[in-house]
């Protein structure tokens, strides 16, 4: 068996374009799913039954349906149901955001619940409103506490962005698949793809370890 690694080098431009899209998707999804997760958590603990029910339904739907199915549904059903058509990139971003928001919502809810009640009481004793106590005292502590979990979610998300290749979003997996189809060099391209994901992912995983070490300990 002979290898032709030149194939990878000759197509490096296409692969790097894919990397750019992968990074964009991961960053944009997190930028939506962090506020989205906080919003879901706030809705669930609001004590307002309608809001809480909506947030629960959302969370349980998108946490328990395979992500790839959410991507297909966003691609095929969303335009029909909403009457709007979005590009594959935006559609993929929506699907990823729905999924990660659901996870982040649970993460933030657990983080908020872990802050002891007496912290809110100290805020109330100063005369703060429930919203001020939440925003100024509880949420910052909760975010700090769930940072390691958010970091793990980020790592999963970074790899899961590959799933949107099924709707032809030009991220790394899709770019690699096209190179593979044009050159028939399956092993070389798959190996290159794995290497690129690993090179990108490993420093992030190390960073997560560091975050765990730095902030993961109890107060």
């Amino acid at each position: 068996m002979t290898f032709d690694w030149l194939v990878v080098w000759n197509n490096i431009g296409a692969l790097l374009d894919g990397v750019k899209v992968t990074i964009f998707l991961a960053v944009a999804t997190m930028a939506i799913a962090v506020p989205g997760g906080i919003l879901l958590a706030v809705m669930r603990i609001s004590g307002i039954r309608v809001l809480s029910a909506i947030a629960t339904a959302f969370t349980e739907l998108f946490r328990n349906v395979p992500l790839i199915l959410v991507i297909y549904m966003a691609y095929y059903e969303l335009p029909v149901m909403s009457g709007l058509s979005a590009s594959p990139l935006v559609t993929g971003l929506i699907a990823l955001s729905l999924n990660v928001s659901a996870y982040n919502g649970e993460t933030f809810r657990a983080g908020i619940a872990s802050i002891r009640k007496s912290q809110s009481e100290a805020a109330y004793a100063l005369g703060m409103s429930p919203w001020q106590a939440f925003r100024i005292v509880v949420l910052p502590q909760a975010i700090k506490r769930v940072l390691p979990v958010l970091a793990s979610t980020w790592i999963s998300l970074f790899k899961d962005t590959s799933l949107v290749s099924v709707i032809s979003v030009g991220e790394l997996s899709y770019a690699a698949t096209r190179v593979r189809a044009q050159t028939f060099r399956v092993l070389e391209v798959l190996t290159a793809m794995a290497a690129i994901y690993w090179v990108l992912g490993y420093p992030q995983a190390k960073l997560v370890d560091w975050i765990n070490h730095r902030w993961g300990r109890a107060e």
Partner: peptide, 23 residues
Amino acid sequence: GKGLRLMRRRMGMVFQNFELFPH
């Protein structure tokens, strides 16, 4: 409600476990 909050700001409270804001 707001009425209680207006009263609370006129009373200082010190807790057994301090309850400083750790962040």
